[in-house]
Design a protein around this nucleic acid. Structure first.
Lengths: 151, 151
DNA sequence: GCGCTCCTGACCAAAAAGGTCAGGAAAGTC
DNA sequence: GACTTTCCTGACCTTTTTGGTCAGGAGCGC
């Protein structure tokens, strides 16, 4: 249940692209802005490109930009592009698992977990992220001091 | 963002223990009931024991049982025992991360993600799980057909 | 003292995580 | 048309994690 460096990097780079508007931004600038190893970042950006999330052009004046408006790209889109499906259990989606014995209802629990992950990741767009205007429901989740406490 | 085999196994074994009441249950029976490799399961049960979640006795009539009443043990307790902290980003808890540039508000997003994970995992107890009586809020999350759809 | 069951550490193979390296291919500039 | 710039791609690498197995020891009950 952790977020990989790759996913974190991907979202951060995408946020910089969202802030960059339609102008192409060089990989090098993204790497500097977010302290990401350049060559690793280039692999990540390539994956994002293959998933139709960013576009790119080579050469002088080249760089990367978002394929869609920033308010149409969610964090879930990006995480899925680089990490694959969210909330799989033992490499299978929760709806495919068959539990037996007294664990039968565990399936519902994992479904609920995924639903709650989606509730955040699919509703925060890159535009929200760069403006700091997260959806009210998400802001409310992050507001309580409780939510910031380790455990 | 996936659930490891180990965590899945741990919760399933704990559910069987919850159903077993105060009687010690043999590792072998747990392994059979849930189709878990016995020797792997024993390592997992040992970890649960070290975290004070289960207790055990050796010898004939020995076995494992829950250290606390089933309605006082949450799924989060078990997942944390075997997987460590929930929802870490790059091996650090989200409250410790400092983002720069246009990614600043990403921290709030990860905090919200963790809050929503906790909202499920910390509120479902083993008793709920074996009875199939999940908390209403959790049941509502798992109810919509939408929640069962892949994506 | 004997059988049962947990306890523990060592070991292992495969995959994933987190990168680095070297070179090729397009786009723009002079 | 050469040159520079920047993306594109595959190969490679090390370390950690995952998902186990194996062998033996230690305590418990009879």
């Amino acid at each position: 249940m952790r977020v990989s460096a790759k996913a974190d990097y991907a979202v951060r780079a995408a946020a910089e692209l969202a802030a960059g508007g339609d102008e192409p931004v060089k990989g090098e600038r993204l790497a500097e802005a977010q302290d990401i190893p350049l060559q690793f970042l280039e692999h990540i950006l390539l994956e994002l490109k293959h998933h139709g999330i960013v576009r790119a052009r080579r050469g002088a004046k080249g760089g990367y930009w978002l394929a869609k408006p920033a308010d149409e790209v969610t964090i879930a889109d990006i995480v899925r592009a680089v990490e694959g499906p969210i909330a799989h259990v033992q490499s299978s989606p929760p709806e495919d698992i068959e539990y037996k014995g007294h664990a039968e209802h565990l399936q519902e629990v994992w479904i609920a977990v995924r639903a709650n992950l989606r509730a955040v990741l699919e509703h925060v767009t890159l535009a929200d992220l760069v403006n700091g205007e997260l959806p009210p429901a998400v802001k409310d989740l992050a507001a309580p001091a409780d939510a910031w406490a380790p455990r």
